[in-house]
């Protein structure tokens, strides 16, 4: 396999990586600060995509759609936190898993009723319709570069938020010494709600950006959710920096193994069987990565107390 192709596939892996980061950052913050495992995080991704696609279709502006998607997911997240999730903080993880699993069922069915079972195929925004020769001789879709850019910008914003602001200080304190922050009289309820809304907005952003690459459809959240879990476990539960490392690693491993494996397997098997073997073993690679990381560093690559 030549190096240009490998480079192109690495860029594809990076695209997946930044999407996973947006998802994982929210998931891991919510776990880190509140100790809640939220299976419905994928539903926020889906809701952002649907709301964004609808606004884009109405207004013709992808940027407006993106804002609407983020706002919708943040609002839904906020509403969930206020009505349901806060009842779960004191519960065990089984109850959290079940309650948020129930939310997935409700979200999927509600979206199906509102938007119908058919997927929405969102166009690429005009400004990023073409391709850019970022690698000489290899025109690369501008939209994918825009995703990488947006993801990195979001990551920078998160870093600033957490490292440089008072809110960030509380979040950091909350992840390490939850009880003390509470004892200091910080309005912990408001902090939790805000963190949940931020997580929702990030998921909505990811969902909306994925729209033109994939399709806006019921069930899209669960596909990315499980990979997000892998990212979070690989990176270290509760650690945003870990989410970044894990996301890039998982994105690259997933894409590159799917790119390299077929070439190898095709040597020994007929095309249809080879592609079946390669595609699925490629998917296994990510989980294998997780098992290896857990065996060597059970606390994840960048544990939050580091």
């Amino acid at each position: 396999m030549d190096s240009l192709l490998l480079l192109e596939q690495a860029l594809n892996g990076l695209t997946l990586g930044v999407m996973l980061f947006l998802m994982a950052a929210g998931l891991t913050l919510i776990f880190g600060v509140m100790g809640v495992i939220n299976l419905a995080h994928g539903s926020l991704y889906m809701i952002g995509a649907f709301a964004g696609a609808t606004v884009t279709a109405r207004t013709g502006s992808f940027a407006l759609g993106m804002l609407a998607g983020m706002a919708a997911s943040a609002l839904v997240a906020l509403a969930l936190e206020l009505t349901l999730i806060r009842r779960l903080y004191a519960r065990d993880h089984l109850d959290q898993v079940l309650a948020t699993y129930a939310l997935i069922l409700i979200a999927n069915e509600s979206v199906k009723i509102v938007w119908g079972p058919q997927p929405i195929f969102l166009g690429t925004p005009e400004a990023f319709g073409g391709s850019v020769e970022i690698i000489p001789g290899v025109p690369y879709p501008a939209y994918r570069l825009a995703i990488i850019g947006t993801g990195l910008a979001a990551a920078a914003f998160l870093w600033w938020l957490i490292a440089r602001t008072r809110l960030g200080m509380l979040i950091r304190a909350g992840t390490t010494h939850r009880a003390i922050v509470q004892a200091l009289g910080v309005n912990i309820q408001a902090l939790f709600a805000l963190v949940f809304a931020i997580g929702g907005a990030l998921a909505g952003l990811a969902g909306m950006m994925a729209g033109p690459l994939l399709a806006v459809q019921v069930g899209m959240g669960e596909q990315i959710l499980i990979l997000t879990f892998v990212v979070v476990v690989v990176g270290g539960l509760g650690s945003v920096r870990g989410a970044m490392a894990g996301a890039v690693l998982v994105g690259l491993v997933d894409t590159l193994s799917r790119a390299v494996l077929p070439v190898a397997v095709r040597e020994v098997l007929p095309p249809s069987a080879a592609d079946q073997v390669a595609a699925n073993l490629g998917a296994v690679a990510v989980y294998l990565l997780m098992a290896v990381v857990l065996a060597i560093r059970p606390q994840g690559l960048v544990p939050r107390h580091a």
Binding site: L5, E8, Q9, A215, R258, A259
Partner: peptide, 11 residues
């Protein structure tokens, strides 16, 4: 739904 890898191979 994402054919980035296939497109790279085609090129």
């Amino acid at each position: 739904l994402d054919y980035a890898a296939e497109l790279a191979a085609i090129r």
